[in-house]
Design a binder for these strands. Structure first.
Lengths: 152, 152
DNA sequence: GGGAATTGTGGGTAAATGTGGGTAATCAGA
DNA sequence: TCTGATTACCCACATTTACCCACAATTCCC
């Protein structure tokens, strides 16, 4: 499973290097084939190895078209899913639309998140992180029922 | 299966290029034969490879004429279904009636959606997308029960 | 601490792709 | 049968993308 944090830069062509410690695993899993899509819950991107994405796609395909929320989730996640391939330098190309969606500028943060990675614009990530930390610290944000019983 | 997002332009003759990464698959599946029809759930269009459409047509044929919603779905989807063929440049011609239904102007968005593609006017799509993202972000729109248990 | 290998970054070039428009063939209506 | 409109095919251009090589920075090892 993927974990950890890296800051990377996006070059003028919109390319981003994948940290080398993940590359071997990515080659094993799907020969470097990746799927990048938007994270509809935050303004960030999700990056799956192709094999992991196929599981997600199956879950999405099972959702009904007649439930509006489900339909939108399918449209967004599948619609924006983009096939990427590690190039010979271990980089991937981030399509303009996805960069825009996540306001990705020159510096990117990549977070290992289990079966996938999460990509944030560096500035956005810092804001988000600080906001969330403050919420938790303040006890304003009531934890949801599931979290109330969670021991870490 | 199809996924991904592309912005394309419709030329003065009403033609639209199919992104090249899909063309080979489309030739394999049905020799470039496609069926374009309206999406009765949104004001957009659905584009099926002929072989996939035939499955849909069978499903539609099985729906009862005495259920009003089913009857309408049959009428609309079958009635507006239009045969298209990839031309030598990998383009298809969008009939005027369907372009009107989806308010398709100069710029079109094509979304891969599993067994089919979804075609939107670019402006309409952006509106749709932003509305939905806001709903999800605000936590107002309660996720439907299926979504509540969905881990991505 | 110094040298070598690995990793991250930048950019040039050639091929592929998307776009536009001219011209010939086809079709429908009068 | 003639005429006008629509559709299919062809060629040409501009942009984008993929592939390649090169350098800078970092890490690792002796």
């Amino acid at each position: 499973m993927f974990r950890g944090f890296t800051t990377l830069s996006v070059d003028s062509k919109g390319r981003m290097a994948i940290p080398s410690r993940y590359r071997e695993r990515l080659m094993e899993l799907a020969d470097g084939a990746l799927v990048l899509t938007l994270n509809p819950l935050d303004h960030s991107l999700w990056l799956y190895p192709l094999t992991e994405w196929e599981l997600i796609e199956a879950k999405l395909a099972a959702l009904s078209d007649f439930d509006r929320q489900s339909r939108r989730a399918k449209q967004m996640m599948r619609g924006y899913a983009c096939d990427c391939q590690l190039d010979s330098q271990g980089r991937i190309l981030l399509p303009v639309e996805l960069r825009d969606y996540a306001s990705i500028g020159k510096q990117v943060v990549i977070l290992g998140q289990g079966n996938k990675f999460e990509l944030w614009d560096e500035t956005c990530w810092k804001q988000q992180r600080d906001e969330w930390l403050q919420e938790v610290g303040n006890d304003n944000g009531q934890p949801s029922d599931t979290l109330k019983t969670l021991s870490l």
